[in-house]
Amino acid sequence: MAPHDVETTFQRHFGYAPLLVRAPGRINLIGEHTDYNNGFVLPAAINKEIFFAVGLNGRPEARLVSQDLNETYSFPVEAPRRQDRQWANYLIGVTAQLQKLGLDVPGFDCVFGGTIPIGSGLSSSAALESGLAVALNQLLDGQLNRMQLARAGQLAEHEFAGVQCGIMDQFASLHGRAGQVVRLDCRSMEYEYFPFDTTACDIVLCNSGVKHALADSEYNTRRRECEQGVALLKQHYPGIESLRDATREQLEAHRAELGDVVYRRCRYVVEENARVEAACRHLLAHDLTAFGQEMYGSHAGLRDDYEVSCRELDFLVEAARPAAGVYGSRMMGGGFGGCTINLVAPDQVTTFVRNTRAAYQQQFGRALETYHVTIVEGVAVV
């Protein structure tokens, strides 16, 4: 899939020249489920992408074409409403959010398709939202900045896709820089770039093949459990507005009141924030071994305290741990499936991929897809 593929489809369907936009998926090196708790994340945009062909059609409706699914959908732009076609909801939602931000969105045509594996935890939904937002902002000469576009994508997900996601995925797709990861403070929205030495290690993703639906109850349940913890802690410590403000000592002091489940959810988030800050220090010190230990700690917390892993992800992380040249491994994304992210010395990548595929096939009786990814620029007009 390349830009000219969606352009060709657009010309065939609609008969005029479109604007072309590339929107990347994202990885998150560390900092999982911290974004909606006002914490820290460390994502980057990657070369798994969705390409868009978009044009204004002078009609009262938007006409959408999903090239990968070979499906079409249309909706009236003056009254965007949530529909029963889930992929369309992301785009309908973006249209509605841009209108709320004062952009007068007329009828438009959109063809999209790409290389982000659906359900892999690489944030195809955020790329979908961010790409359309940039395209419409450009076509309509809008003055919305990238943070506003990220927020529009996040709210589209909340209100139209039914997922109470944080801001990280849309932010990373829009703010990516080649060869750098970005630490986002999800409370202040301040961010800082850190160099990621791609000569010292490669990024290899192993796709468990287990499909996860983020919109299912578990993701939103975790968010509610964290909110319950904050509400209780706030009774004792009025300064606590989110788990970002809480300490391990405060959690321990009220462990019995919190109850086992809520306590463990909160403990994971508090510790994960500390791991992100430590990981950034390791990057500055060029200490990939120490960085990798933070990744293993992150996975253990996601598995045991947050309980969003699955046996396939756990198997992949444990298979990576003793492998030559592997600095670190963990599950990535919302959980219940998707990918592990592995930092591997370049001269060991081929062996790592071969051995991990063989072990996975033997254990689960199915093929393991792997992706060798690079860190790229964020959403851009092609």
Rank of each mutant, 00 (worst) to 15 (best):
D5P: 00
V6G: 08
T9H: 04
H13D: 09
G15P: 07
Y16G: 11
R22G: 05
L29P: 07
E32L: 01
G39W: 02
V41W: 11
L42R: 06
A45V: 11
A53Y: 04
A53T: 06
V54S: 00
P60C: 08
V65D: 04
A79I: 03
R85I: 15
V94F: 12
A96Y: 09
V105H: 04
G107W: 12
C110E: 02
G113M: 06
G114I: 10
T115R: 01
I118G: 01
S120R: 06
S124N: 13
S125P: 03
A126N: 07
E129H: 10
L136T: 02
L136Q: 05
G142E: 05
M147H: 13
R151W: 00
R151I: 14
G153R: 06
L155W: 12
E159V: 04
F171M: 11
H175V: 09
G176V: 09
V181P: 08
D185I: 02
D185N: 15
E190D: 13
A200T: 13
L205G: 05
A213E: 13
L214I: 14
A215S: 14
D216W: 11
E218T: 11
Y219H: 06
E225T: 02
V230Q: 03
V230F: 04
A246I: 01
H254V: 00
V262K: 00
R264I: 03
R264H: 14
R265P: 03
C266D: 00
E277F: 06
R281C: 07
L284Q: 14
L284T: 15
Y296S: 01
L313G: 02
L313M: 12
A319K: 06
A323L: 06
G328H: 00
R330A: 06
G334M: 09
F336A: 01
N342L: 05
L343S: 08
A345P: 01
P346M: 10
Q348C: 14
V349A: 08
V349I: 12
R357I: 02
Y360M: 07
Q362G: 12
Q363E: 15
T370A: 13
Y371L: 15
V373M: 04
G378H: 06
V379P: 02
